[in-house]
Design a protein around this nucleic acid. Structure first.
Lengths: 124, 124
DNA sequence: CCCGTACTTCGATAGTTGTCTATGTTGACG
DNA sequence: CGTCAACATAGACAACTATCGAAGTACGGG
């Protein structure tokens, strides 16, 4: 049934080059290289359609969804495919074919890394 | 001389239309409208130069910086100005003129809102 | 073996964006 | 009032991107 809770929460993610990436934005000025890396991730979420697709996958039962589950965002199916590819290239999603369908799932470590980037100083 | 600790941490931010905006991406599929709003903020951070500028302001002493403090990012001065304007339009920065200089500071509530968006399920 | 479904890739196109130079504005200081 | 410094705006242009329809690929079923 629902193997929902079995998500790997903070894998090293050495597959492509996602990596932990960066310290919080507020800690010190980012270097050009850090900015390049981080901007790529933010940019991927900087489109409304992609955000909806990403959110649809992230919130879907089991942490994954096939394209057919989420293509109802008001654009054509090739466009959906295009955006999913972008999200994949940014390291935010992974995909896997199972029979006729292709399933997308979120990369939790990257999501966590982005969250840390936006961390406010602890106001100590 | 350092009024550093007086940052307003979570103001309602009813000034322009920044607002709390959205539930975590993983909670439920975003609506088109939510996505539109949130994407605008992510998009603003989706450029390396803007990220560096934002990080420079955010990490600067006192939580604010004049343009002259942060213009060393490898692009011309008008371009810096252009990017700061974008960040301001996205609600991520505010600006204030004091004498000859214009000071930019981060909007903590918006940063916090974006951080919440990227929150992972509590794995309970 | 053929067909239908699910998805991706291909080209084309309109719109957006990052960058620059040139010019404008605003304030401080003689 | 004139000038300089800090910053913003305007206009132009190359590069990128979101979108579509059409064609391609992969898989399962009859």
């Amino acid at each position: 049934m629902s193997n929902v809770k079995a998500l790997p929460l903070l894998e090293p993610a050495d597959g492509q080059g996602v990596a932990p990436c960066c310290p919080p934005l507020t800690e010190r000025p980012m270097t050009a290289q850090e900015a390049e890396t981080a901007a790529r991730m933010f940019k991927a979420l900087g489109d409304p359609v992609r955000l909806r697709l990403f959110s649809a996958v992230a919130s879907h039962e089991g942490g994954e969804a096939c394209v057919c589950d989420i293509s109802d965002v008001g654009v054509s199916q090739p466009t959906v495919s295009h955006h999913l590819k972008k999200l994949k290239e940014a390291g935010l999603l992974t995909s896997e074919r199972r029979g006729t369908w292709v399933y997308y799932r979120v990369e939790p470590s990257v999501l966590a890394a982005m969250g840390k980037l936006l961390t406010l100083p602890t106001a100590a």
